[in-house]
């Protein structure tokens, strides 16, 4: 899905076009999920936030004032709901550390197993190293890169809505964070 199609897809979906809705879900789900993960929500909380966001999007479909900015609408709603989750868990368990649930697990998912085929072993290893170094970046970089790496790259407007930072600061911050990640990888001789 091209980002320039979003407005037309929203308008078609309002008119009842299920294929347009499907294209929106496929095109923008990675953004919603990335924003959830950027906020370090657990699986259970993340699933509920994701669903709340899409239910609300469906409910408001005909009322969204700027259909071409639906991605920003989704990103901002996801951020808002994620912060609510963080706030409620802080209220209930003020001493708990933020859960670190998006660590690479030792259990292999089917996708990972595919990667473990012999030809793909090197690629798999590189991906794990990149991910591991990414996870150990400072919080601000980890958050920004987690949103930027969504499948179907998000626009800076969407990143801004997802993280509450100014559009103009995203480019410089992105470059700085990627440079830091590169430095970490170089230091480990990973790439």
């Amino acid at each position: 899905m091209d980002r320039s199609d979003v407005g037309a897809l929203v308008r078609s979906a309002v008119d009842g076009d299920a294929a347009a809705w499907k294209a929106l879900v496929e095109g923008l789900s990675p953004l919603v999920w990335s924003v959830v993960r950027a906020h370090r929500l657990s699986d259970a909380d993340g699933h509920e936030v994701y669903q709340t966001v899409w239910f609300r999007f469906a409910q408001n479909l005909g009322r969204i004032r700027e259909p071409h900015k639906a991605g920003s609408w989704l990103a901002s709603t996801t951020r808002h709901e994620s912060l609510k989750v963080i706030r409620s868990s802080q209220r209930l368990m003020p001493t708990d550390d933020p859960q670190l649930l998006d660590r690479v697990s030792e259990d292999r998912t089917p996708e990972q197993s595919v990667l473990d085929s012999e030809e793909a072993a090197a690629e798999s290893e590189r991906i794990r190293r990149v991910w591991q170094e990414f996870e150990e970046l400072g919080e601000r970089c980890r958050q920004l890169l987690r949103v930027l790496m969504a499948a179907q790259p998000p626009s800076y407007q969407e990143v801004s809505a997802a993280l509450g930072i100014a559009v103009g600061s995203i480019g410089p911050l992105r470059q700085r964070c990627l440079r830091r990640l590169r430095a970490r990888l170089d230091a480990r001789g990973a790439l």
């Binding site: 990972q112 991906i127 990149v130 991910w131 790496m149």
Partner: peptide
């Protein structure tokens, strides 16, 4: 960034 995108698609997909 592309490398990260591939990693996310494998290790933390929707």
């Amino acid at each position: 960034e592309e490398e990260l995108r591939r990693a996310a698609a494998v290790l933390d997909p929707v």
